[in-house]
């Protein structure tokens, strides 16, 4: 007889932790993110071999390698298209995508609205640190205006993008945010995003301790974060979510901004219906060329 909830669970966090030692700098926010992902995956209970975890390039994109899932550490900015191909080829898989602010909103930004509108059931986790860490401290698309970096010696002249507003405006069915300063909250948002039937997005404010603004970011997060639930936010209210999302860059809201209470059918679900409908019309493969015979 099982004596505890933990014993009942098919998987525990440690089942998702690989033997690889992360290359991240000591204190990097991404250590917390990967822990939160282990927890979320354990709670969901799918076997590691039924999970495909895709990433692009950047510090954050090393994450799949630190899990025991199938991973694909691909090229810069292209994780989303690859992940969509995986999910359509095998809709039974749980498909996660990890990205950073540069990977996701700069070089790969063009893929985002299409991934959202296609509504393939994948979960997109962006580790947003407002800087290019792997290449040692250049301006990122979410860097605040005026930020001085090695490529903006005199302060950036550009407004940052607002990932939360983007996603809400594109029509994402699930938009959440978390920080490694609140591990339990972050794991919960990731778990809920993964359970959402459709495209889901989690923005993680994951501090870069090496090239970020200062060394006390996690402490600052802990002091300043406001849970959306505690603010009484109704996550089915998309307009209210947009109102709160405008605080991106100054406020640190955690939890669920928006979750569509009536999720529309996903692309992958519709694909299966169509395949089943059309299957009876298939010619045997060896007779495919018959359609070219002039009769």
């Amino acid at each position: 007889m099982p004596t505890s909830v933990a014993a009942l669970a098919a998987y525990q966090s440690k089942d998702f932790k690989s033997d690889l030692k992360p290359i991240w700098c000591p204190g990097c926010g991404d250590f917390g993110v990967v822990q939160a992902i282990y927890r979320a995956l354990a709670a969901i209970g799918r076997a590691p071999h039924d999970i495909a975890f895709v990433s692009g390039i950047g510090c954050s994109s090393r994450i799949p390698g630190y899990t025991t899932a199938y991973g694909f550490n691909s090229v810069h900015g292209r994780a989303l298209p690859i992940a969509q191909g995986i999910k359509l080829a095998n809709p039974d898989l749980l498909v996660l995508v990890a990205s950073g602010d540069g990977d996701g909103f700069s070089i790969g930004g063009g893929h985002v609205p299409h991934a959202v509108r296609r509504n393939i059931d994948i979960t997109y986790i962006v580790m947003d640190n407002q800087i290019y860490g792997l290449t040692k401290g250049q301006l990122s698309p979410t860097s605040p205006k005026g930020l001085k970096t090695v490529t903006s010696e005199y302060g950036s002249l550009e407004e940052p993008v607002n990932p939360l507003m983007y996603m809400l405006a594109y029509g994402a069915g699930f938009v959440g945010q978390g920080t490694p300063a609140d591990m339990a909250g972050l794991a919960d948002v990731i778990e809920q995003a993964t359970r959402y039937p459709g495209f889901s997005f989690v923005n993680v404010q994951s501090p870069c301790v090496t090239f970020g603004e200062d060394d006390d970011q996690v402490k600052d997060h802990r002091a300043n974060m406001k849970s959306l639930a505690s603010l009484g936010h109704d996550p089915t209210d998309r307009l209210a979510a947009m109102g709160l999302a405008q605080g991106y860059g100054t406020d640190l809201h955690t939890g669920i901004f928006y979750k569509n209470p009536n999720p529309p059918p996903t692309f992958d679900a519709q694909m299966r219906v169509r395949q089943a409908e059309l299957a009876p019309k298939a010619l045997p493969r060896e007779r495919i060329l018959d359609m070219f015979v002039q009769r």
Partner: peptide, 26 residues
Amino acid sequence: WKYGGAVLQCEDEIAGIGAALGASFA
């Protein structure tokens, strides 16, 4: 589709080959 497959018309050429490579990985 009749053979249990799918076509994804993508947002650009890069996404097209990306999705195709993803399917092969799967």
